[in-house]
Design a protein around this nucleic acid. Structure first.
Lengths: 208, 208
DNA sequence: CTACTAACCTATCAGTGATAGGATGACGCA
DNA sequence: TGCGTCATCCTATCACTGATAGGTTAGTAG
């Protein structure tokens, strides 16, 4: 763990490269030990720099976690955009989006947690945290995709906002529980996901 | 905040009473400052005892939060049991359970978070945490209620376990998002809840 | 060769959860 | 009444956390 520093082998890096380096190590540590269970010293040690050096790149530990979340959600946004414009039948596009979302949440557990499962602001009138924006943008893409499906008649009628939020909630619920309670007796997880997706599709899709 | 200690007014209490006292203050503080944002010293100060004295009642801070969760979930279990045996038409019992669940989650936000939203064990093979059991028992009651409804023909067919977990996920999803992201532009929250409940009922209820 | 700047360091801070070991007060029993 | 016993509660302290202050070093432009 101290290999780098002991041998003084760590090269000085341009700020941007070092920043990516930090994010990569932090991401790996968060997955192993959780966010609260990973200290800034652990991250710095893994990178091979001193703990205060982290603060040249991120103002706080929270900023670091938010940056990590932002990076991951940029890829979710890509994923959703790709599915929206993909050459697949509109009828199966909703399923692709839902399955893509679930896969992303389980794969990028740490990032997903940061964006949607951490303790939020305590008072509703608090300032909106702009670092959370990437998650919100991904959701906006999701919503727009639904709006399009609705226009094409593949989504049930009703307020698109309500539908998007409700569908989001139903999908998020499974992701959140699987991430928060992996020790729950879920049975076969893939089967559970299939079951849930099927019910969601039946509930939100237009079967006309 | 230091009123008690400064005046030496705090009486010695029998262990059980002091324990309840601690839980009550901790619950209030958790709601205001979050779990991570509430230190053991804040709790001790509010109660009017020294910080180490907490450890006579709870082995760790986590044990305290778990106890708080357990206490709250006992009341959720009561609520569900009450609804199950209540003199209401079987057709509306599902809706009552879902709405009761949502109301509980939003009212007892801190307890709900502890049971279902905190960082769980990192490795699936880790020992099952018995302090989480109350939440699991409440879920078991929920599941049994669904099994009964299914027998009576008010729930769609299929694996009761899958149905319970899926319905749980859908309901939990909304609760979790509302708790984690109160700053999201939800619009009118009550309307959102109504909308979601309606969709859930249509998806899981047997309309025969 | 010098001056500047970004990268990086050591030393230290207040605050955290948790532990060790001593003081105090109530209650049962002689 | 006096004496032990034991639960309650304390002060002092631990290792560790996130964060800050201020000095050092390496690369680079002139």
């Amino acid at each position: 763990m101290v290999a780098h520093r002991a041998t003084g082998v760590v090269p000085r890096l341009k700020s941007a490269a070092r920043r990516e380096d930090i994010l990569n190590h932090a991401s790996r540590l968060f997955l192993s030990y959780g966010i609260a269970g990973t200290s800034t010293r652990m991250i710095a040690n893994a990178v091979g720099i001193s703990q205060p050096s982290l603060y040249a790149h991120f103002a706080t530990k929270e900023a670091l976690t938010n940056a990590l979340s932002a990076r991951a959600f940029a890829s979710l946004e890509d994923l959703i955009a790709k599915i929206r414009s993909a050459d697949i039948p509109a009828a199966t596009r909703l399923e692709a989006m839902i399955r893509g979302y679930i896969r992303f949440a389980l794969d990028q557990g740490a990032a997903y947690r940061i964006a949607f499962m951490l303790e939020g602001p305590m008072h509703e009138d608090e300032a909106f945290n702009p670092d959370i924006l990437p998650g919100m943008q991904a959701f906006a893409g999701f919503r727009d995709g639904l709006a399009l499906l609705q226009q094409e008649g593949h989504l049930r009628e009703g307020s698109t906002d309500h539908l998007a939020q409700s569908l989001w909630a139903s999908t998020h619920g499974l992701c959140a529980l699987l991430l928060a309670r992996p020790d729950f007796p879920w049975g076969e997880i893939e089967a559970m996901i299939d079951f849930h997706v099927e019910i969601i599709l039946a509930a939100y899709q237009n079967k006309a």
